[in-house]
Design a protein around this nucleic acid. Sequence first.
DNA 1: AAATTGACCGGAAATCTCATTCGGTCATAA
DNA 2: TTATGACCGAATGAGATTTCCGGTCAATTT
Lengths: 190, 190
Amino acid sequence: MSFDRKQQILEAATKSFSLFGYKATTMEQVAKLSNVGKGTIYTFFKNKEELFDEIIRSLIAEMKAAADEAIDPSLSFYENVHRGLYKILEFRLKHQLTIKLFQEEKEMGTPAVMEVIGQLEDAILNYLKDKVSLAIEKGVIRECDPELTAFVMLKVYIALIFDWEQHHEPLEKEKIAMLFEQYIMKGLSL
Amino acid sequence: MSFDRKQQILEAATKSFSLFGYKATTMEQVAKLSNVGKGTIYTFFKNKEELFDEIIRSLIAEMKAAADEAIDPSLSFYENVHRGLYKILEFRLKHQLTIKLFQEEKEMGTPAVMEVIGQLEDAILNYLKDKVSLAIEKGVIRECDPELTAFVMLKVYIALIFDWEQHHEPLEKEKIAMLFEQYIMKGLSL
DNA sequence: AAATTGACCGGAAATCTCATTCGGTCATAA
DNA sequence: TTATGACCGAATGAGATTTCCGGTCAATTT
């Protein structure tokens, strides 16, 4: 029973955060949307930020699941990195909550939102780092610092998928995969 | 004679922009510093922004010169890219004017400053692009889109030199050169 | 007595008002 | 013809005032 109510609150809060962002959703509103008194929320969550964090935690879990699903062990390492990262970044563009959050970070810089986006990036980086470590162990790629490598890979990927679009025509998915392979895997030397 | 005065104004303005930033330097102040009536400035420059632009143009020229100086034709392509980019980014950290400008962009977002920083980045990108084109012609590196390649190179470089420092120990210059070679030139595949 | 609620509190943020600043002009002076 | 600085109005900022909202807790319900 109290389990139901917590779920209700989480769903209402998710909906509201997705629709209005973090700052613009009030606890009163969440209470109304979940048919609960405002005080009740505070029996399940210490404060607004913890409620937010719990929502983000499940968002991250969802993203991880989506990435895992995109991976196919019969394909090459680089192709799987591509598929995983593409799924994650696609997720970011398709889900209300992430869209709203990135928007809020850019145009308001809400501290709680910035922190949460940091967590999200850390999660991606960690995910990637594990994949890189595994690839080194298996002898699929050259020996290197997995953390730094994951960091560079993500930067290159974001550069190709988002940053390039700021001043140029967007690149197609296939092209991005090709470029990623060329720059990161094969290298430019002959 | 009028040449002298224009120079005086440019020097005074450069000093003031370096010291106080774009927004906080007033035309009155530039006039005082250059021993000239305020109106006189407007006989040489259409407005504050054009005065600023002219200063930035010479800043860019200086950076280009510094980069050229760092380049040694007897060294490899990647090593020269490293030396050139390092010089440019070092320049950015050592010169009052650029320091102040990047600070002003970050914490105030002054439009004129943002635009000028865009110009600066374009100049770097173009400089790099030319080097890449040349390297392709000479057959030193694999065939590729020079603009996109310059873009990715710069992203990786900035990632290694600035972004990594946000959450980790800074990398040494030598290490950066090595990593740059590993990631961009040699690639990760075996 | 355990759980739920919403009126209430205080500080943060938004809004409004009014004073100041500064980019740019132009009549006057050199 | 060239140089100047007093002057203009728009934009900015400081200060005062109001509104808003996260979080608490005494009262109420179960």
